[in-house]
Design a binder for these strands. Structure first.
Lengths: 205, 205
DNA sequence: AAAAATCAAACAAACGTTTGATTAATTCAA
DNA sequence: TTGAATTAATCAAACGTTTGTTTGATTTTT
């Protein structure tokens, strides 16, 4: 069961890990940020590693998003599904930037193998869903014959690139450091528009 | 000056950091891998942090690639320049996967601020170069009016996505874990082909 | 003979974790 | 509703490791 206290610690941990990385964050630092005693982390979660696992499980549904309902919706055309996935994916990541960073830190290291595989699995499932939609569109000849796996890499990769570094993002956009592109609605629309345009011009005849 | 010994330690460090991350790697582990005494790292580099800085400087020219000569070449059209940058960038990253991972680990954590800024600067310079080419193409009306910054994010982001996790990459390509996509020439060509196609269909009229 | 490189050993600091005492909250018979 | 009994939560302190780093002696190179 997830109590208020556990949730409180997990949320503090997400922010801390996103900033300093898992290995770079100490339990003492976490405890001080969350304003709890150092022993509380091990009391509630057992260990630092298990805290990480708890966070991933806690946010697991977030990772999948609305992929299932979009895929299952029979009133939508393939390109409409793609557009919805773009909107959903952008919104999901931009509104959970810290957790997103943690996931990619883990992918980039992959020390804890079991955890690594867990995360990869969810990603692969998302990618497979999109691949199915693309392949269906290709079959119906509304899409050009494309490389579905790398198309998915383009979609996700573009968003990730933007999420990599707020500093880089702001430099590119000619904004000063105080600007937060992730919460800015104009920037979100700009990202969605770009993704739709590039994916449309690539997929559609 | 970079001696053989320093180079030897740096190369071992690049592999180790890429696997376990900077914080996750201990100097003792590094020393044992490089088959040198623990004291040698501090003897040659001063500290663990300075070793990291030395690595970035050591590989700095790699980060820039052939961007300058491609941009300066006046016999090339804009789209030819883009194609060359794609080929150069893919080759560069696929043949230095470990260093590439380290750079992105640093971007994703960004504890050491000065180092973080250093890396961002080189990235921004690369991105600016590509942006100039795109904007010139737009001006000449050989390119459609596109979002140059996010186009760059798409190009880099697609490659990065593939580089994130060998495990994920192999799952997507229906390969077993023993396959190394980064050294496979067929895969490299596939990636280049996809990038050219998607960028062409987006940029060209 | 001087300088550079290597080594085992030790350093203090920081780490994740555990302990045992103490306080707060909950339970339940009277 | 009360009050003792039980459980849960919190705490400062300490545990044993591991960390990056330094030392001072020893070997190798110049």
């Amino acid at each position: 069961m997830i109590t208020d206290k556990k949730e409180h610690i997990m949320n503090a941990a997400i922010e801390l890990f996103a900033e300093k990385g898992f290995e770079g964050s100490s339990i003492r630092d976490l405890a001080s940020r969350a304003d709890v005693n150092v022993a509380m982390v091990n009391y509630y979660f057992g260990s630092k590693d298990k805290l990480f696992e708890a966070i991933v499980e806690y946010k697991a549904s977030f990772m999948r998003g609305k992929m299932d309902e979009i895929e299952a919706n029979k009133t939508l055309t393939e390109i409409e599904k793609i557009d919805l996935i773009i909107e959903n994916y952008v919104a999901k990541i931009l509104s959970n930037p810290s957790f997103h960073r943690i996931l990619y830190q883990e992918l980039l290291m992959g020390e804890r193998e079991a955890m690594h595989e867990n995360i990869v699995k969810v990603f692969v499932r998302n990618i497979t869903t999109l691949r199915n939609i693309i392949e269906q569109g290709v079959k119906k000849k509304v899409f050009k014959k494309v490389d579905p796996e790398l198309t998915m890499a383009t979609l996700i990769g573009t968003i990730n690139q933007v999420m990599l570094s707020k500093a880089m993002c702001n430099m590119l956009m000619d904004r000063d450091g105080s600007f937060d592109p992730y919460t800015d609605l104009v920037f979100r629309q700009r990202l969605i528009k770009h993704l739709k345009q590039i994916i449309h011009s690539y997929l559609l005849n």
